[in-house]
């Protein structure tokens, strides 16, 4: 508590900044939730976080503002994007909701929660006095934080250090693929294994690609799923096209697995693919 600080009146500049950046933050949050593409979501979230960072700086927390921008938008979100690339920007997040009533319930509960908490906060903080931090006792914000962090909160600080170490080690343990020593296969062995199995030798197509062959013997697909004879080179025997099953109806759309498709023709069309048998 800064006893000298009189009540601070919030200035017009801050109000303008709030009314500009507040909607931006809201838009970022909504955009993150509603964009189908995960990369887009990440970018929307970056927008929100940057806005919040500016808010921190405005609210006399410049250190945290910087940390927000550097740590969150700089490090954490980049980590997200890395993982997105590793996982594959897959198209599995279809727009169809599989849990009945989930969206409606989420919307109702969300609105209710926002209304309750918003109203509660607004009511509780009506006429909230702003003591303000100013320059935090004259030594600046970073010094003030550091003083507290290394005195009163030093134990918690040490604990967070331990937490970070444990988190790093845990992440390593999780992502580590165990291989028996000497079982590592070189390029030669990998190629041989790839060509000697029944599976196709070429790489898997990217997400969203229905055709699984780019051979000259494979005919092109028409939009309705039939093959086009004109696309096959002359003198070549047309090859049976292996293709991803297409969503043909509501039932297939109902299952994310069905949308993802299966190479097994017997199960590809199974409605409600999330049956017990599939996760054996």
């Amino acid at each position: 508590m800064n006893p000298d600080a009189a009540e601070v009146v919030i200035g017009t500049g801050e109000a303008v900044a709030f009314w500009v950046l507040g909607p931006v933050a809201l838009a970022g949050a909504l955009g993150m939730v509603f964009s189908r593409n995960a990369v887009h979501s990440a970018l929307w979230l970056v927008t929100t976080m940057l806005s919040l960072g500016v808010f921190y700086v405005i609210q006399s927390a410049p250190f945290l503002g910087a940390a927000q921008i550097i740590v969150y938008t700089g490090a954490i979100m980049i980590l997200f994007l890395f993982v997105l690339m590793l996982v594959g920007r897959d198209s599995s997040d279809s727009v169809v909701e599989t849990l009945r009533g989930q969206r409606v319930a989420a919307a109702v509960l969300g609105v209710g929660f926002a209304a309750l908490v918003g109203a509660g906060v607004a009511r509780a903080t009506e006429g909230l006095t702003v003591v303000g931090l100013g320059d935090a006792g004259g030594d600046g914000n970073v010094t003030a934080i550091a003083e507290l962090l290394y005195t009163r909160y030093v134990l918690a600080f040490e604990a967070t250090g331990a937490l970070l170490i444990v988190a790093a080690v845990g992440a390593l343990v999780y992502t580590q693929m165990e291989r028996r020593p000497g079982s590592r296969r070189g390029q030669k062995e990998l190629s041989r294994a790839r060509f000697l199995t029944d599976d196709r030798p070429q790489t898997l197509p990217g997400p969203g690609v229905y055709a699984r062959a780019n051979s000259v013997a494979a005919p092109a697909l028409l939009p309705d799923g039939r093959t086009s004879a004109e696309t096959v080179a002359t003198g070549v025997e047309a090859q049976e096209v292996e293709q991803m099953p297409r969503p043909t109806g509501r039932e297939q759309l109902g299952s994310p697995d069905a949308a993802l498709g299966s190479l097994d023709p017997t199960t590809s069309g199974t409605p409600g693919g999330r049956t017990g048998g599939e996760h054996r």
Binding site: A106, L109, G110, G112, L116, G120
Partner: peptide, 19 residues
């Protein structure tokens, strides 16, 4: 997500009760 829905419902209830 169903379980998370339960948690949010509980949170709404708690917030409503507090209010």
């Amino acid at each position: 997500r169903s379980y998370a829905m339960g948690m949010l419902g509980g949170a709404v209830l708690v917030a409503g009760a507090l209010l």
